[in-house]
């Protein structure tokens, strides 16, 4: 399948997403929103997965935690994978659980060799439970942590090498983290193992209400910023066409507005395809 551009699915866009004539439009959902026994919510996922290719983008496995991934959560995720046959399944390089308590966020950690072994084992467990490989997404970062033994790009590359997982590169997260922690986002993109990148995310961010532009927040509540579009074009020129997602989770606009961003990303992808074909 030639990669195309998808959009993050919102229930209020159900009719528009099903009716859209857009060629090979695909949709991504958070599986946690559909881990229910039945009823209308479950029926919505069936409706979209029958009509369109879908991707499951998890937020709850806490793969960068010291504990094993929750087996009951993995079973629920496997049930969705078996039922809806997503073409992509992804999770985050972050943690969100300690013991029996969940923190609905994507939390950071020191990239040590000990953490690397632990996280590689967690990814292995997830991939075995799901019967397939998954993509791991780079996080948005807000604080500097002492004691990193690895750069994030080397850490991701080593996870790929050890587990066979792929990467989901969120270009907005790269922009946000580079801004907040003070590094060059282009150097970051150039250091990624490009052959492992199986999906790209594009999203909007906002300025922290107190600290302004020095602290960018990965808020997914605005249109994609111009510097993120520029980084996307840079990354795509390196990787060739990769399935790309327009992600929006708050301040949800009309479906047509998301589709306009999709068209813009599609034109970047198409230009790259022509370069690759030529």
């Amino acid at each position: 399948m030639v990669p195309t551009v998808g959009i993050g699915f919102k229930p209020e866009h159900l009719e528009a997403a099903l009716r859209s004539p857009a060629d090979r439009l695909w949709l991504e959902v958070h599986p946690e929103n559909y881990m229910v026994a039945g009823g209308p919510r479950a029926a919505v996922l069936s409706a979209i997965s029958e009509a369109r290719p879908i991707s499951l983008h998890g937020v709850g496995l806490s793969l960068a935690g010291a504990a094993d991934p929750d087996p009951s959560h993995l079973r629920r995720l496997r049930a969705l994978v078996d039922r809806h046959a997503p073409f992509l399944v992804s999770e985050h390089l972050a943690w969100s659980r300690m013991g029996d308590t969940c923190f609905p966020d994507l939390l950071p950690f020191p990239r040590t060799t000990e953490a690397l072994g632990r996280i590689a084992d967690n990814i292995d467990q997830a991939q075995q439970a799901l019967g397939r490989t998954i993509l791991i997404e780079n996080p948005s970062l807000y604080v500097a942590i002492d004691g990193h033994g690895w750069t994030e790009t080397d850490f991701l590359a080593e996870l790929v090498r050890r587990t066979g997982c792929g990467l989901l590169i969120d270009v907005n997260n790269v922009h946000v983290s580079a801004n907040n922690l003070g590094y060059d986002p282009v150097d970051y993109l150039d250091a990624l193992p490009r052959e492992a990148i199986g999906e790209i995310h594009l999203a909007g961010h906002s300025h922290d209400p107190v600290h302004g532009a020095s602290l960018l927040i990965d808020s997914h509540d605005a249109s994609i910023a111009e510097p993120v579009w520029a980084l996307y074009a840079h990354l795509i020129a390196r990787t060739g066409p990769v399935p790309t997602l327009i992600e929006r989770d708050d301040n949800i606009p009309a479906f047509a507005e998301l589709m306009a961003e999709r068209d813009r990303a599609a034109s970047v992808l198409a230009a790259t395809s022509e370069m690759v074909d030529a």
Binding site: P110, T112, G149
Partner: peptide
């Protein structure tokens, strides 16, 4: 550097 579990515990606190 504390191990991952200790880091998480301090972070949660």
């Amino acid at each position: 550097m504390p191990d991952l579990a200790s880091f998480q515990s301090g972070f949660v606190d």
